[in-house]
Each structure stands twice: as structure tokens, then as C-alpha cells.
């Protein structure tokens, strides 16, 4: 009803969806205090694409990301990763799916303080009890310029370096999809630019699917497509965005 401008992936037809949300709603709290963070959201995120999710603070961006990434369960609706219906999985299956199919970059506290950068990068692979693909990992580490930081503990790394280690971890296990929630939120602009450049490259050169939540128009301009959220609804989208266009649209949303 209110989702008038809401677009589904079906409009951009034959490309396969890496992840989908179908009629997803998320409510927090009960009774009068109920907050609807997401209201009947339909999105489809195409494989091999860099998608940004934008919107004002509190619009439900993080909540949507958590649903799509199997970090939380929707109150109603269905979430798919590829062909797997996440909403029907139990905790263990969901955990294994996150471990093997999904990469994460959070805004902060991405790394275990007791482990070196190298150990953090292969953490999910080691949790799975597998051997990391050394060549692959090395190529990512080189792309991120982390080669001389591998033995450092997180506390010995700058914020930008920490986020790059997180990015390396996210890609190390060749996941289906990488989710990033405001990965540059705590970084200065130079470090942010570096990280965004890498994500862009990962999509372009490695064919990685990346979904990033951000409220920064410049960050969003690195994406192939931007989804706009407002008040728990997907209100619009934009392809091949520029920072100015995004900024304009955001102003329009705020008005």
C-alpha cells in the first residue's frame, strides 16, 4: 500500500539474485511500544553487483542487512540466499551458512583482539576446520596492502588497517556475498576511500557480490546500484549513482 515506489529485482530481469527479501517485516518490542523497523520489504540483490543501501538514520538499513545476512530473523516474510531459504534454517545451519557463504565487514569491532591480522583473516575458514587457500588469501592481502601488517595484533593497527583486515577476512573464504554495515563509518576519508576502492575492485575484478549499508553519498557512489530506505520501506533505487545525485535524492527524502 505505502510501498508505492518500491521496486523488486524482477524489474531488472534475467540476472540471478544472490539474495532476496520477500515481504520482510521486522518489529521490535510488544504492545504500544512496538517499533516497525521494516515493513513488508521486497528486495532482490543481483550477483556480481555492488549494491548500496542508503537512507536516513533509523530507516531500517542495518535491520535489513541483518535479515539478509542471516544474523537475525524477520518477524514475517522470507529471506533467500541464492536458492536457500534462510528463514527455514535452524541456528546451526544458519551459522554454517554464514561461515561458508557470507563475508562480513562491520562498522567496528571486526577483529578478535587476541589474534594477529593473519589469524583474523582466516578465522572463519579455521572455524570450519579447513585449510585456507594460501594463494587466494595472499592475492587479497596484496590487493589490500596488508602484507607487512600480517603479524600485528588489532590494537597495533590503525582503524583503516583494521577495516582492511576485516575486508580480507570477508573475502578469504570466497563467499557468495559480502555484507558491509557502514564499513567506513569510523574511518577518515582517505582510509575510507581506500577501502571503498577495494570493494569496488572486488566486484569488478573478482566478480564478488557486495552489499553495503551507508549513509554517506560519496560511499554510495562507488556502488552499481543504490537502494533508498525510509521509515522501514524501500522507497526508490538508482543505478550508476554519482555522489551528487545521491545527495540530491537524500535531500528530497529528508524534505
Amino acid at each position: 500500500m505505502s510501498a508505492t515506489i518500491s521496486m523488486t529485482g524482477s524489474s531488472t530481469a534475467p540476472v540471478t539474485a544472490a539474495a532476496r527479501a520477500e515481504g520482510v517485516s521486522k518489529f521490535y518490542g510488544t504492545g504500544d511500544a512496538t517499533i516497525a523497523a521494516l515493513k513488508d520489504v521486497y528486495v532482490s540483490l543481483e550477483a556480481g553487483m555492488f549494491t548500496a543501501i542508503m537512507g536516513p538514520s533509523g530507516s531500517g538499513k542495518s535491520t535489513l542487512l541483518h535479515m539478509l545476512a542471516g544474523l537475525d530473523r524477520p518477524t514475517s516474510g522470507e529471506v533467500f540466499l541464492g536458492d536457500t531459504q534462510l528463514t527455514s534454517l535452524n541456528d546451526k545451519a544458519l551459522t554454517l551458512l554464514r561461515r561458508d557463504q557470507i563475508g562480513f565487514i562491520f562498522q567496528s569491532f571486526n577483529l578478535l583482539p587476541t589474534m594477529s591480522a593473519a589469524e583474523n583473516i582466516v578465522l572463519p575458514i579455521r572455524i570450519a576446520g579447513r585449510k585456507p587457500d594460501e594463494v587466494w588469501v595472499k592475492s587479497i592481502v596484496d590487493k589490500l596492502g596488508l602484507a607487512d601488517r600480517l603479524t600485528h595484533r588489532p590494537t597495533e593497527l590503525s582503524g583503516g588497517q583494521q577495516q582492511r583486515v576485516a575486508a580480507a577476512r570477508a573475502l578469504a573464504s570466497r563467499p557468495q556475498i559480502v555484507f558491509a554495515d557502514e564499513p567506513t563509518g569510523a574511518l577518515d576519508s582517505a582510509a575510507g576511500t581506500e577501502l571503498l576502492g577495494f570493494l569496488r575492485k572486488a566486484v569488478k575484478e573478482l566478480g564478488q557480490t557486495v552489499v553495503m549499508v551507508t549513509h554517506d553519498p560519496t560511499a554510495a557512489s562507488y556502488a552499481d546500484r543504490v537502494l533508498f530506505l525510509a521509515d522501514g520501506h524501500v522507497v526508490d533505487e538508482m543505478f550508476e549513482p554519482t555522489a551528487d545525485a545521491v545527495l540530491d535524492f537524500m535531500k528530497h527524502l529528508g524534505a
Binding site: K92, T95, R99
Partner: peptide
């Protein structure tokens, strides 16, 4: 708590 959450997020099962 945060570390445990992180470990769970990146794929550590409850049993682990």
C-alpha cells in the same frame, strides 16, 4: 560479549 557475538556472526556454532 562482543567477541562472542563476532565469532558467532562469522560462523562459530553454539557447540563450538
Amino acid at each position: 560479549t562482543r567477541e562472542l557475538g563476532l565469532l558467532r556472526a562469522v560462523g562459530m556454532t553454539r557447540n563450538q
